[in-house]
């Protein structure tokens, strides 16, 4: 049995509670969404919670465009990697990659029900 995070992106409202509680858990006595291991990709009308995944020391080149349904997303919008292309999922002091520990706090705190933890065999 393995824990798997299921994301209902159409339910996400961009309130960033997942980022808040993740940073509070890992920083212990402070809140900083930029140090969170889950980030919400957002533009005006779309929100996607992205969980820190694999680590890459290299940038992807060339960047590609992602299509989901009829919608187009900028290059690495939905990528989970900690990599040089963007400032996400990195410890600001050491530069080390931050990885999700699957503790489930963000699932418990998400007010809109966009996150769910399921058991997969």
């Amino acid at each position: 049995m393995k824990k798997v995070m299921k994301i209902y992106h159409d339910k996400c409202t961009g309130c960033r509670y997942c980022e808040i509680i993740c940073s509070l858990r890992h920083l212990k006595n402070a809140v900083d969404p930029k140090q969170s291991r889950i980030r919400v990709y957002q533009d005006d009308e779309r929100f996607f919670p992205i969980i820190a995944g694999a680590t890459s020391t290299q940038e992807c080149r060339p960047h590609s465009t992602v299509f989901m349904g009829n919608e187009e997303f900028e290059d690495c919008a939905l990528c989970r990697a900690s990599c040089p292309s963007r400032p996400w999922f990195k410890d600001p002091n050491t530069g080390k990659a931050l990885k999700c520990s699957m503790c489930g706090d963000c699932v418990e705190w998400c007010p809109s029900g966009a996150l769910e933890m399921i058991q997969a065999s």
Binding site: D10, T13, G14, C15, R16, Y17, R46, F47, P111, S112
Partner: peptide, 11 residues
Amino acid sequence: RNKACYGCPLS
């Protein structure tokens, strides 16, 4: 769709 401010469940 719904859109919330920072840290708000009311969206």
